[in-house]
């Protein structure tokens, strides 16, 4: 899922300084699961903002809403008719949701309430780890299910480097060395031949803004365009 972190209250306050009527919109998918921007977090943020603005003697009127997915125009339609009553929208979705919101309601300023952090997995309650950089050229088959682009601090394709330190990365002792673990796991599976050959320079597919239309829907897109 997409993992996000609530921005500090001061930063959100400074973005909303000149606005008196603000609609805070949560997102019910990834950011709700990672406890950053779901319905519950909308309530908490609004309560914090309310108090802060009261103390500043600059009261604010806050609305609350939560849609299933802000990265889907269909769900944003639900806000139509509601948005007109506000000077600004505070979106608690990831960067994709914020941008779709801003595109859907172009005349209204939209501000982000979270920092989108990474694509990650849930290690424990409230504990998330980055796992994927969406590079577009997955090599997990070769690397025993450990992503070298994400988990190696240098993003090496032919590791481990000389900085590997008793199974840990040179950047610090709590960061395991991805390539040490790749080696260990491949060795256990008897698959070390996977990394015996030089892995050539990557053909990066994430250097321009990307669009994906699944094969089954390409005709539909062409029709829509014509």
């Amino acid at each position: 899922m997409i993992v996000a972190e609530r921005k500090p209250l001061e930063e959100i306050e400074s973005m909303l300084k000149g606005y008196r009527r603000v609609l805070t919109v949560g997102c019910g998918t990834c950011v709700a699961v990672c406890l950053a921007g779901g319905e519950k977090e909308v309530g908490i943020l609004n309560a914090e903002l309310q108090i802060a603005r009261k103390l500043d003697e600059n009261p604010i009127e806050l609305g609350a809403a939560c849609v299933e997915r802000q990265c889907d125009m269909e769900f944003l339609d639900e806000l139509q008719g509601m948005v007109d009553q506000y000077d600004a929208i505070l979106s608690m979705a990831c960067g994709a949701g914020v941008q779709f919101m801003a595109e859907r309601f172009e005349d209204v300023p939209v501000f982000p309430a979270v920092d989108t952090t990474f694509i990650g997995a849930n290690r424990d309650v409230g504990w998330y780890e980055e796992k994927c950089r969406a590079c577009g050229t997955c090599v997990l088959g070769m690397t025993a299910g450990i992503c070298p682009v994400t988990m190696c601090a240098k993003g090496l394709f032919n590791g481990p480097c000389g900085g590997t330190n008793n199974g840990y990365c040179e950047i610090g002792n709590d960061q395991p060395c991805a390539w040490y673990r790749i080696y260990e796991r491949l060795a256990r599976q008897g698959r070390l031949e996977q990394i015996m050959e030089i892995h050539p320079a990557n053909e990066w597919r994430n250097q321009t803004p990307r669009t994906l239309v699944q094969a089954a829907y390409r005709k539909r897109k062409e029709l829509a365009a014509s």
Partner: peptide, 13 residues
């Protein structure tokens, strides 16, 4: 210029 215009279009910028 973006690397896409050159002779190493899949380079990481």
């Amino acid at each position: 210029d973006h690397q896409q215009f050159g002779d190493h279009p899949r380079a990481k910028s």
